[in-house]
Design a protein around this nucleic acid. Sequence first.
RNA 1: GCGCCCGUAGCUCAGUGGACAGAGCGCUGCCCUCCGGAGGCAGAAGUCGCAGGUUCAAAUCCUGCCGGGCGUACCA
Length: 546
Amino acid sequence: MQLEALVRAAVNEALLQLNTPCEEEIPVDRPPRREYGDLSSRVAFLLAPAAQRNPAVLSQEIAACLAGDPRFVAVSAEGGFVNFTFSLAALADVVRSVLGRGEAYGRGGGGGGRKLQVEFISSNPTGPLTVGHGRQAALGDVVASLLAEQGWQITREYYLNDEGRQIELLGRSLWARYRQALNQEVPLPEGGYHGEYLLTLGHRLAAAWGDRYPEWNAGTQEVFRKLAVDEMMGMITADLEAIGVSFDVWTKEGDLHRRGLIEETLNSLRERGAVYEHEGALWLRSTDHGLGRDPVLVRSDSTPTYLLVDIAYHVDKFRRGFVKVVDVQGADHVEEQRQVLLALNLLGVPAGFLDYCLHQFVTVRGQEGVERMSTRAGRFLRLRDMVDDLGRDVFRYFMVMRKPSSHLNFDYELAKSSSMENPVYYVQYAYTRIASLVREAERLGETPEGLASVDLSPLTDPSERELILELDRFGDVLRTAADEYAPHLLCEYLEGVAKLFHPYYSRVRVLGQGRTTHARLALLSGAGLILRRGLAVLGLSAPEEM
RNA sequence: GCGCCCGUAGCUCAGUGGACAGAGCGCUGCCCUCCGGAGGCAGAAGUCGCAGGUUCAAAUCCUGCCGGGCGUACCA
């Protein structure tokens, strides 16, 4: 990050001398081949057309201007690119920045302390969390952390659908299981919940209550509905705890109703002429705005659909003062997302207020070909079972290591492996080795006075240069990952740092080398700090010992 | 049919306009009495789904086609 700025400044100076100012930001890239230097700029390609110059010549002139610049040991032009190789002093500044800024290193200020909400999981309380929810849980939690790193004031929120048809069905299913446990032939309702968890719960209730609720009536319904939701929420919070996810706010659908928000939102949409009646139901005019079909807002039995409630919920989010809202949702919600965005637009909520982080589904390797998971049918892999088996760190990492928009193939065998083949351990082990090294240095009395002021001139090994260049990228990686809701970029970055570290560590001796020891300890402390910070953003531990 | 996502090495995936396309796993060979061996080094392996187009430059942008996933409910 600071090295990029350094190149940018140097190029600007050269362009000023050449009387060819660049209006846009100077492009700086990592060259594809090591021999091209540490960083490069294709600025000459950018300026050549307007200046009517040959990029190859222009790049040579830029390089010539910067010959002998103390920030670089080499500035060269090749085929229109300008390639930069930093001086050791410039690189050493990076290490000093890392150590100097410490925990704050890599943070960005784009959020400016403004309020941002990340809503995720929001799974119906109709069963325990599944592997699919696991991806969303990890993704939402890490995206929230990434945005917090950019200076946003984050609220993690879970929307709890505690009313409606599915919940009635759940209560009725539970009652059926309860009666079955008392040896009464009561079938599960049509479309009811088949999962084993209700069976277990039914037996428990039968043992506790005996024949207290023999009939399905309004009173029984109320008892079972409420109890079922409470029990399911208990399971869900326990599951969340297992993966280390916690929420700041839980919003219940019932509250939105009681506050009259649904009605109010419907009226606002109606005033804007966006609603019409057809076959006894109320529909949203969305085909007028290029969407595929008009969805129902209020059913003919006068109950609101999920879509209308969701629109009202988002209007409420806007009123609550969030500057931005990110909803993490599965790919099966695209259609609905467009409807919500359209409705918000009609209601005057500024564009860009709501953003979706859309993710594809998870397949666990070895289970391909099985039917799609369904909580209702009782056909799913429980998140809890996988977390208990693999550990929180591995589970979380594997869930965010792929681009959200790509289907996730979960390699269970690799996740289960405890060697360095497993990327989680590969990264964590790098940190552990550094921690161990620092402890050993302290024990031997080889720890330098102030790490940040150590003489770094002994860092002449090529791997040390590589490592420093990589450390310098940390802030960029965090920012891009936050902007794009793409935690996998951070995973790849950390694996890259670990991949530079491990071979270096096994090849180079750190302790007992005098000044070189001090310099290497400073560099590795910086690397350790970044590994720990990166792992923390992912919600993983950085073990001092493994 | 329509909409969205995906198609890159044997497998799982990075890489959204720049220089001879990368990683992990797997495979082949070599090395390791040493700060934590839960190792290290090297190698083989790719017409970037196909065909056109735009550009000085395309895995990347545009169009069409092929293949896979998801959606297309008065479910959520």
